[in-house]
Every structure is written in structure tokens, then in C-alpha cells.
């Protein structure tokens, strides 16, 4: 559905045979394909591992992440504590899993809110056009011209740190790209024959929007939503690191890194290193999966950047 975009070629109406080879050919050899398969499989395995760990460890493992053991504080990574212990002797592996759980929860929730808002605004702006479109796009422009983290800092500062301000401030800055993508997609769909056919068939605006336009833009919107999960996690952890994020009793990975600053300056690297790795791995895994998904729904862009 998305592969009928008009070609924008600088050379105009040149016969196809003479057109330069598309760069995509480079990524179609067997070796490249095997690399891509490997990447997708690794990403899938890692994503599954992250989700399973986050869902299963708290109910299955009967260990208290907050259990303080001052006798075992700041132990180096070892067999009994694979990631070592923090400055009051809590096991860092367990703390990281719980932190990832909090980060992932905030990230997914914020991305969901952002996806719904972005799709609704983008679809309305694209489908209605006129002043609705203009006002909506001005709002998007205005929000896009404030650095996101600064806006988050501002919101959390005014509303006091907590789960809801963090979640809403992250969601408020992540629906913009979805809205833009959905609007552009709807605009290009509006001129398509099947929409014209629906109009001449007497379908109402509402029916066209719900039955024809929204289903057609959902893959793109879903892709944008999936890609915004790691970004939202990153955003939340940055706020928490600045001390403007989640409260200490529901420590996210950002809180863990913030809390480890003292021991880092005393020379202990492990309380800082592992929470950061726990942020990197899900991000890469989700990006790998989203890249594969995009290859499927939009083969034309296969050779482009996976970002």
C-alpha cells in the first residue's frame, strides 16, 4: 500500500534501462541477507529475553531487590552477585532487572499514549485539512522547536517529580513525529482512486476515515510507536538522572545511574556500568526488529539508514 509513491527523479522521463543502479542491490547478496537474518534473530532473542526477564523475574524469583546487606556493600562482580553490589549491599543484577521493568513500563506507556495522540491528530489534520490542519501543524511546529528534554525538565519541575508528570511529559514530546508521518500518509492517500471510489459510492467522511484511511496508515504509525519506545525509555532515564524523574522507591535505570555517582567517584565502576548496558541492549534489539518490520512494509527504503 505504501509502495505506489510517485518517483521523484531529477532526470525526469528517462528510460528505465539507463537509470543508475539503485544502491539497494548492494544489500541483496546472500552474505548481506544472512547478516540481516542474523541481526533480526539476535534482536528477536534479546527482545524476548528482556520481556521475559521483566515479566517473570519479579513473581518467580523470591529475592528482595531492596534487601540491604551492609556487610556485602560495593562487592565486585562475582558468582554470587554477577553485577556486584551497590553502596548498601543490594544485588545489582536484581536492581537492574527491576529498574528495567520500571523503565520499560514508562517507555511503553508513554509510547502508547504518544502513538494514539499522534495518529488521531495526524489523521484529523490530514483528513479534514483547512484550518484544523493549519492549527494542528502550528502546534506541532511549536512543540518541535523546544528541545524535548528541556520541555520535560520544565513540566516535571512545575508538576513535581512523579510517575504521571514524567509519563505525560515524555508522551507530550513523542507524538509529533507520528502525527507528521500519519498526516503525510493520509494526504497522499486522499487522492488515491479507492478513496475517490468510496466518496462516489456515497461513504461518509467518518466511514472513509475509519475504514479506509486509518487502516492504511496503521503500519507506519505502529512502526513510529515501536521506535519511540527506546527513545521514551532514554528520555525517562535522563530525567531521572537529573533528579527530575521517578521517585527513589520505584527506581528506574536512570535512578540507578544517578544513585551510583557517589560510588563511581570513589572508584567503583560496576554500579554505573551495568544499568547503562541494560538501557543499550533493549534499544538496539527494538531498533533491529523495527528495521526488519520497515523492510517488510516499505521495501523501497531497505537500503536506507536503520535509525
Amino acid at each position: 500500500m505504501t509502495c505506489e509513491r510517485p518517483e521523484t527523479s531529477a532526470t525526469g522521463g528517462r528510460p528505465d534501462v539507463l537509470a543508475p543502479l539503485p544502491v539497494a542491490w548492494r544489500s541483496h547478496g546472500p552474505r548481506q541477507r544472512s547478516w540481516r537474518t542474523l541481526r533480526v534473530r539476535t534482536s528477536a532473542v534479546l527482545t524476548a529475553a528482556v520481556v521475559l526477564a521483566v515479566l517473570l523475574v519479579p513473581p518467580l524469583v523470591q529475592l528482595d531487590q531492596q534487601a540491604v546487606d551492609l556487610a556485602a556493600k560495593l562487592r565486585q562482580p562475582s558468582w554470587s552477585h554477577p553485577f556486584g553490589t551497590d553502596d548498601v549491599g543490594r544485588d545489582l543484577l536484581l536492581r537492574c532487572v527491576y529498574g528495567l521493568r520500571v523503565s520499560l513500563f514508562v517507555g511503553v506507556a508513554a509510547a502508547l499514549v504518544a502513538a494514539v495522540v499522534g495518529t488521531a491528530v495526524g489523521a484529523l489534520a490530514g483528513a479534514l485539512g483547512g484550518w484544523v490542519d493549519r492549527v494542528a501543524m502550528r502546534v506541532v511546529d511549536a512543540l518541535a522547536s523546544v528541545p524535548h528534554l528541556l520541555l520535560g525538565v520544565f513540566v516535571v519541575a512545575l508538576f513535581r517529580p512523579g510517575v504521571w508528570p514524567v509519563l505525560l511529559s515524555v508522551a507530550a514530546t513523542h507524538w509529533l513525529s507520528t502525527a507528521r508521518i500519519v498526516r503525510a500518509e493520509v494526504l497522499s492517500l486522499r487522492g488515491r482512486p479507492f478513496v475517490d471510489a468510496a466518496i462516489s459510492g456515497g461513504a461518509s467522511r467518518w466511514r472513509i476515515a475509519v475504514r479506509h484511511l486509518v487502516p492504511a496508515v496503521l503500519p507506519q504509525a505502529g512502526l513510529a510507536a515501536v521506535l519511540s519506545v527506546p527513545h521514551a525509555m532514554w528520555h525517562e532515564s535522563a530525567l531521572s538522572f537529573l533528579g527530575l524523574g521517578l521517585p527513589a522507591h520505584m527506581a528506574s535505570l536512570g535512578n540507578l545511574i544517578e544513585g551510583a555517582r557517589g560510588s563511581l567517584l570513589a572508584g567503583q565502576w560496576w554500579p554505573t556500568l551495568f544499568p547503562g548496558l541494560f538501557l543499550i541492549v533493549p534499544t538496539l534489539a527494538v531498533a533491529g526488529l523495527a528495521g526488519a518490520w520497515r523492510d517488510r512494509i516499505d521495501p523501497r527504503r531497505r537500503s536506507e539508514l536503520m535509525l
Partner: peptide
């Protein structure tokens, strides 16, 4: 690009 900048800074 996936690594948080404050984490890189601390390391």
C-alpha cells in the same frame, strides 16, 4: 547512539 550520554560521561 543507543548509549545514554550521561552514562558515557560518567564512564
Amino acid at each position: 547512539s543507543a548509549a545514554p550520554v550521561f552514562w558515557l560521561a560518567l564512564l
